[in-house]
Amino acid sequence: MPEREQVRRREGGRAEDTVVEEAPVAGADTAAKLKNDLDDLLDEIDEVLEDNAEEFVKNYVQKGGE
């Protein structure tokens, strides 16, 4: 598929170069940050998720629409 190869070299190539240069440090930092963010988020979900998930999901019944 020549079209796509051309795009990826032209558009994606720059981004990949940048990532390669900074990858070792930035990658690890970003991954750690993402992991922390997700942990915080999951703490929040533990708090707000409907108590009885089974009932909650079972009771959500809709009629088809459109």
Partner: peptide
């Protein structure tokens, strides 16, 4: 698990305090 389906549903809840 029903809990995962609950997350799926609650992602779309319009209540600001509940919306995932």
């Amino acid at each position: 698990s029903a809990k995962l389906r609950a997350i799926d549903l609650q992602y779309h809840d319009l209540r600001p305090e509940k919306s995932l």
